[in-house]
Write a protein that binds this DNA or RNA. Structure first.
Lengths: 261, 261
DNA sequence: CGCAGTATTGAAATTTCTCAAGCCGAGTGG
DNA sequence: CCACTCGGCTTGAGAAATTTCAATACTGCG
């Protein structure tokens, strides 16, 4: 081969890229000074790849590291008594989908790749060390988990008190806003690799109902969904259909970045 | 009256009691050394009472303090586009139902008293100061919000993929286990002040469905619910009915207390 | 006593689920 | 090149769960 040890060279550069991306992500809402940046630089993440459908962590596991998503989509899920799956949240580039395992030793849910995924694994030990060095970093990570919780809350309301079309529209709104925030959207489209069965497992609806709800949104020219991509055709109408108000995402658009005193 | 200035005397003692209770609560799962205890002692909580139905905080508010529950029950809720209410979580003695407002400036949900309630208000400024003094305290508070999130996740699954009877049984299981953990149960019963309408707003079910689900659980001699109290008649059967596994509550029963390195 | 809030019951209307079948495009092997 | 399979999408129709509407009790309280 012409190139020598491309794997090793890429690995190093990818780790640095990962740390930089973490900084960028935290900076969206929190103060990241030189001190915090240095604390981050002390981390030695391990880059891992997972293919569609693979589990990153399983319910009952006791992980010793948390992942940060570099690309692709991950989903947290419960497995119910009857063996069916309920997705709890969908995660994209820039998310920390299992940061809670830092303090909740045993996983109460699983984490699966919904697409080809690249993550940076951050050892808990290093994360704790970094956070002890920098309270601002602690607060920034904490805040990540709090936004997570706000998204969970919205999912409760979505599954609990909205009709099938509203639910679907709301989910798609959320995905698009989050993709924009993470700057992985392509114009008015973004990647959305779930099939209709998985959408149903996210929204607590049967595949048939998902299909019919999708058709309504398509017929109304709100969205299109094909080839693993979500296309927003009429954002305002879609928001109305889903009763969507992005305040709960606590993005910079709604409140200026948070600063520690 | 025989007693002089009982309000003033009680206020002081209640504040101390509140701080002691916070310590007890955190000790259930985290290390609270003298250092943390001292950091807590530096707080000057304000005791407040709310009566049934009152709002403690409203969606859109920007609170400058967080509450700690001394007695009674609080509920977090969303108000949907159509004006109806969706309860997100129920909180009891020893909970911090709006700790997230420390870092998420604007409330994305409301907090209402579901009963006569006594809370200790903890100013954010003081909390931040205490946490800067003690990383272990920070981690303990963080962990509180993470368990919150685990409960939210379970509610997603509950609202998304369980039948009406399962949902109700699961909710009651959760309430009872949490009451036991907080040591506010009375034998196999605990306070549960929600009426059937409110249970419906928690589980995303109509009041009629709640009523019928309740009757099933009563007929099966799993529980009784009257006078604002929940009576557990057959715990194992109730757990089975609700597919309930308490692992997600991350109580000491499931994993030893968490200790910072 | 009468009121207000809550619980209960019946029955029709509606939504959603389940079951079943057919379609379509991509990939495979003969 | 074509038949075949597989996964995913779509459609129809009956079954089931849940909601809605409406009426009736019950209970504590002024």
């Amino acid at each position: 081969m012409a190139r020598k040890t491309p794997a090793a060279r890429n690995a190093i550069s990818k780790e640095q890229q990962a740390l930089a991306l973490i900084g960028t992500q935290l900076r969206r809402h929190s103060t990241v000074t030189d001190k915090e940046a240095n604390a981050l630089q002390a981390l030695s993440p391990e880059i891992k790849n997972f293919s569609k459908g693979e589990d990153i962590v399983r319910q009952g596991d006791k992980p010793v590291s948390s992942v940060f998503i570099l690309s692709g989509m991950l989903g947290r899920y419960h497995t119910t008594g009857s063996g069916s799956r309920q997705y709890l949240s969908l995660h994209i580039t820039g998310d920390f989908p299992d940061l809670q395992s830092l303090f909740l030793v045993e996983m109460d849910h699983g984490l699966a790749a919904l697409d080809e995924v690249e993550v940076a694994c951050l050892p808990h030990k290093q994360l704790r060390k970094a956070m002890l060095d920098s309270p601002a970093l602690t607060f920034a990570f904490w805040r990540e988990t709090l936004i997570d919780a706000a998204i969970f809350r919205q999912a409760i309301t979505n599954n609990g008190s909205r009709s099938s079309v509203e639910r679907l529209a709301h989910l798609l709104c959320e995905q698009y806003v989050r993709a924009r925030e993470a700057e992985i959207n392509v114009g008015t489209s973004t990647g959305f690799p779930l099939n209709q069965t998985q959408i149903g497992q996210t929204l607590g609806m049967s595949i048939v109902t998902v299909n019919r709800a999708l058709q309504q949104l398509r017929r109304k020219k709100c969205i299109d969904l094909r080839e693993g991509k979500l296309f927003i055709l009429d954002w305002k109408k879609l928001q109305r259909e889903g009763n969507f108000d992005s305040a709960y995402l606590h993005t910079a658009l709604h409140a200026g970045p948070f600063h520690v005193d």
